[in-house]
Design a protein around this nucleic acid. Structure first.
Length: 987
DNA sequence: GTCCGACCGTA
DNA sequence: TTACGGTCGGACG
């Protein structure tokens, strides 16, 4: 480098963040890869390279380099561990752009410079010094105030986004001090984004005024006592050391080791084809055209280069709600996407810098399988200081695996016994909080000593657990979230390994930690039974000795963290980001709150019903014994079969797979229809005892002592299709079809002054079918608000809808459902009790009238066979590996399930979206209605009497528009809603 | 004590 | 013909 040469230094890392926030979001058309910052970066580079003379810089560079931060940890952290500690993690759609911007730099044939342990700013300071010493001039492409200290008559800055040169006068104008005093100014003011303390109460204006008066920081500190303003004087004296430390932190290091000398930065000519290959891959069409013109390259001849991103993007399936004002979207949660990056990390870690998302996922998976997990090395934390140290480290790292130990599996009655944290694989701790001493006598034993008092531990944990810049990772977060919610802590943001697994691998095989650990880590976890015993000898977790509790609980957190490292990158690699972030994660808190609310159940009504059922059943029992001629256990299918088909000699219908005669309701109904009295009685008895044992007897046991309400538990990852399931108790199978059964619903009541509102989708699955299979007649019928089963019957049997016999409609209805279930002649015949041939003929007729349905079914089967999975309209996948089975029965079953899954699953996704938006929509309308239950196509709310009329339209609106705008259905959704005192009348 | 099959309630 | 969970009886250890 010589006199007259001019070096351009681009602050690459700074540019990324600035461009991300300043420029409108932009995604690659073909797959939704976020590329806004990349686009801005490329446009700026191109302008500087081709057009610098016409910018505010006014000169053409001879040397050029782009500088990046290497990683979050620099020498500054050794002087001040809190440095940049409160910086939040980059937003998810920025993460893939770090790698892309490096690739862009290389495509522009420019040197890409970074150095471990140093920030980009230090490298820029070093190169600027070297260039000036060699006689050159320097322009730093950045507007970061941290770099302004470097400005002098040979060094200036250039804001590439505002096309504005920043020289000495501009610095003075902006900050009131010349560039050489910027360090002292920053030392006084501090910087909250970098967590530089400075002196409290001193901002830029005061700092400039003080420096004007006293000259520099040291003089100011030495003469602080002369300052007139009392508060200011006291602060400067008290925080003098803090200011000196701050000065150390903001002073850029201009003698960092460098790998490339100045001569390596000489600007080389552009490699047109290489650059165009990259720009085409990014789908930047206008820049591609400009570059092609300037470099004389034929862009059409050039293939896009394969672009590699660390995380890829939500590239698969429809781009769910990008840019939509969606109540579901948590404000882009600060989070890291996979664990290789630490909290502040503007840089891509070396692990993955050159990997595709798929390759990263694979390397993580391979590495995890090779690692041994030692459960004896976990820490047991018994004092607040140690706990605080772990919390601090978690806060600094930016993510932590978290798990709770309790004395119950029901989150609404569980008490916190302890909790565990994991910061890195193998690095976990257990914090016992309510363990009892094992030596307790019959009176129960006392609390174990040397445990951190619960309130102190919670107070210490709360800031971290609620810190937006610390990602909390759990397996089945809904449990831990609800538990901690009851202790006054609302965990956010979070990831849930169970839900990540579910978004990726829904299908056969569960998503429990034990099975995930075996599958992905090759590690058999300690079974709960091994530490707490089982059955009668089982003890509550608070009686487990601390050594074993630490191993068990520590392992839970450790395994969760390891699973997260393996599974999270797969989301991007396999295009499941949208499903996870839009349909899974936001539902956690929605469901947790529903579970916490519970529903009021009238104990008296159930008790009365139980009595009635017992009486009726007893009466029938006597008649059964009389007819059978002996007493036996009616509830035993085996004994019943012996009586019916042995002793009584009834003709057996079908057999079960164990070879027993079936005593199913269908068989008994057939016998009853043939005029036999006993089978009828059995059917009646079964119905009564079923209602009694499953509902009226069991439900009161679920009424919570404290709340007086029933709190069901929803499983988010239990089904292969995306539906929820409900248990403890299951409130998704409360009877409705028979008059006797319906009475149970009258026990589900609104609280005083409230009503229950039931809102359910009408025919949602058939509507989804009409949409995905694109069936004109069905779509028209729904658009016209017609009776869909009658329309089907009319089409199939050529009968007018008017005055249609109910039997004809019934058959069409059965066929419609059969279609959704992946119809077979055998199944339809069974359902309608008609010969198989007749059923087969129905199906043929149906396909003739609606040929699109057969096309859809064939296409779905072919897709499933090829890929091993099927997808909902929102991109949720259900896997059916057995669809390629050589066993025809197995194969046929999987084909039917694969046909059903996109329909059932799309409907499930739609109601999920409605639920995710509902709380906000109600709040926005100023309504206090609360969502209590979900029953697949129905939502149940509780609302104050006087708000009912205003609530129903809001609920309907949210539900009917739930697919929008991610998917615009070609069929309207219809929601029926009603309010009443109890669930029976509301539905 | 634990597991599985049969049966049956819901969408 | 799809998707679930709960209860019971009965066989296993």
């Amino acid at each position: 480098m010589k006199n007259g040469d001019h070096l351009f230094l681009v602050d690459g890392s700074g540019y990324i963040f600035r461009a991300y926030h300043a420029l409108p979001p932009l995604t690659r058309k073909s797959d939704g890869l976020p590329v806004g910052a990349v686009s801005g970066f490329c446009n700026m580079l191109w302008k500087l390279l081709k057009d610098a003379r016409n910018t505010d810089v006014g000169v053409v560079p001879t040397h050029f380099a782009v500088i990046f931060d290497y990683s979050s940890k620099t020498f500054r952290n050794t002087i001040y561990p809190e440095y940049k500690a409160n910086r939040s993690v980059p937003p998810e759609d920025l993460i893939p752009q770090f790698g892309l911007i490096r690739q862009a730099t290389k495509a522009f044939n420019l040197p890409c410079i970074e150095k471990e342990g140093y920030e980009a700013d230090d490298l820029i300071a070093t190169y600027a010094r070297l260039a000036v010493e060699a006689g050159g001039d320097v322009t730093i492409i950045s507007s970061d105030k941290d770099l302004m200290q470097l400005v002098n008559h040979k060094v200036s800055m250039y804001d590439g986004m505002k096309d504005k040169q920043i020289s000495i006068p501009e610095v003075i104008e902006k900050w009131g001090v010349p560039p050489e005093k910027m360090i002292d100014l920053q030392a006084l003011t501090g910087d909250s984004t970098d967590n530089i303390p400075g002196i409290p109460g001193i901002g830029p204006k005061t700092a400039a005024q003080l420096l004007e008066e006293y000259g520099d920081l040291d003089t100011l500190l030495a003469r602080a006592s002369e300052i007139k303003q009392q508060k200011r004087r006291e602060n400067i004296i008290a925080f003098a050391d803090q200011a000196r430390l701050s000065r150390q932190l903001v002073t850029l290091k201009n003698d960092t080791p460098i790998d490339l000398g100045l001569d390596a930065l000489v600007l080389e000519p552009q490699d047109g084809p290489r650059l165009i290959g990259f720009l085409k891959a990014m789908e930047f069409t206008s820049l591609t055209r400009r570059v092609a013109e300037t470099t004389g390259t034929d862009a059409a001849e050039i293939e896009p280069v394969p672009v590699e991103t660390e995380w890829g993007a939500a590239a698969h399936g429809p781009d769910l709600d990008k840019g939509e004002a969606d109540g579901s979207a948590e404000a882009t949660t600060a989070e890291v996407a996979g664990g290789s990056v630490a909290a502040s990390v503007p840089a891509v870690s070396s692990e993955a810098a050159a990997l595709t998302p798929a390759a990263l996922a694979k390397s993580r998976a391979d590495a995890a399988l090779g690692q041994k997990i030692d459960t004896t090395g976990y820490v047991c934390i018994r004092d607040l200081a140690t706990l605080q140290a772990w919390i601090d480290e978690a806060t600094e790292t930016g993510f932590v695996a978290f798990d709770t130990e309790t004395n119950s599996l029901f989150p609404m009655e569980a008490e916190l016994i302890g909790l565990s944290l994991a910061l890195a694989p193998g690095r976990a701790a257990y914090v016992p909080l309510a363990h009892k001493s094992g030596t307790g006598d019959l009176l129960g034993g006392g609390m174990l000593e040397n445990q951190i008092p619960l309130d102190q531990a919670l107070a210490a944990l709360k800031p971290m657990l609620e810190d937006r810049s610390v990602l909390k990772i759990a397996q089945n977060m809904k449990f831990d979230w609800l538990l901690m919610h009851r202790y006054g802590i609302d965990i956010a943001p979070f990831d849930d390994t169970m839900l990540i697994s579910y978004a990726l691998d829904a299908g056969p095989g569960g998503h429990g930690m034990d099975s995930l650990s075996e599958r992905w880590l090759g590690h058999k976890t300690i079974h709960y039974k091994e530490v707490a015993g089982s059955g009668k000898s089982a003890v509550s977790f608070d009686m487990v000795d601390l050594e074993r509790a630490t191993a068990y609980a520590g392992e839970d957190a450790d395994v969760t963290l390891r699973l997260w490292r393996v599974l999270k990158p797969r989301l991007a690699a396999e295009g499941a980001v949208s499903v996870y972030e839009r349909l899974e994660r936001p539902l956690v808190t929605v469901l947790a709150r529903m579970e916490a609310r519970g529903i009021s159940v009238d104990r008296q009504i159930l008790s009365r019903l139980s009595g009635e059922l017992a009486q009726s059943a007893a009466a029938i029992e006597d008649e059964i014994y009389k007819l059978a001629g002996e007493r036996f256990n009616i509830g035993s299918p085996k004994q019943l079969g012996d009586i019916l088909f042995g002793k009584m000699g009834f003709p057996g219908g079908s057999k079960t797979k164990t070879g027993q005669w079936s005593t199913s309701a269908q068989v008994l109904e057939d016998l009853a229809a043939a005029g036999h009295e006993l089978p009828r009685k059995i059917v009646d008895w079964r119905q009564l005892t079923k209602l009694k044992s499953t509902y009226t007897d069991a439900l009161p046991g679920y009424i919570n002592r404290e709340t007086g309400r029933v709190h069901t538990c929803y499983a988010m990852a239990a089904t292969s299709t995306g539906r929820l399931s409900s248990s403890d108790p299951n409130l998704q199978n409360i009877p409705i079809r028979t008059a006797e059964g319906r009475k149970i619903r009258t026990a589900f009541i609104a609280g005083p002054g409230n009503k229950l509102i039931s809102a359910d989708y009408s025919q949602i699955e058939l509507r989804v079918l009409a949409h995905v299979a694109d069936i004109p007649q069905l779509k028209q019928a729904f658009a016209d608000g017609m009776d869909i089963h009658a329309m089907t019957a009319s089409e199939m049997f050529n009968v007018p809808v008017k005055d249609m016999p109910s039997e004809v409609r019934r058959r069409a209805k059965a066929i419609n459902f059969g279609i959704i279930y992946g119809i077979s002649a055998f199944g339809l015949a069974n359902q309608l009790s008609i010969p198989r041939e007749e059923a087969g003929q129905y199906i043929r007729t149906y396909f003739e009238r609606f040929p699109g349905i057969r096309d859809y079914m064939d296409a779905t089967k072919a897709f499933a066979r090829e890929h091993g999975y099927v997808e909902t309209i929102f991109g949720r996948r259900a896997h059916y590996p057995e669809i390629r089975s050589s066993n025809p029965q197995m194969r046929a079953f999987n084909e039917r399930a694969a046909i059903n899954a996109p329909i059932q699953g799309s409907a499930a996704d739609i109601i999920r979206r409605a639920m995710i938006r509902m709380d906000d929509a109600l709040a926005e309308a100023g309504l206090s209605a609360r969502m209590l239950l979900q029953v697949h196509d129905e939502l149940v709310f509780e609302a104050p009497d006087e708000e009912v009329d205003k609530t129903i339209p809001v609920v309907r609106h949210v539900m009917e528009n739930a697919a929008m705008p991610a998917v615009s259905l070609s069929v309207p959704l219809q929601v029926d809603a009603r309010a009443a005192q109890n669930w029976d009348e509301a539905h």
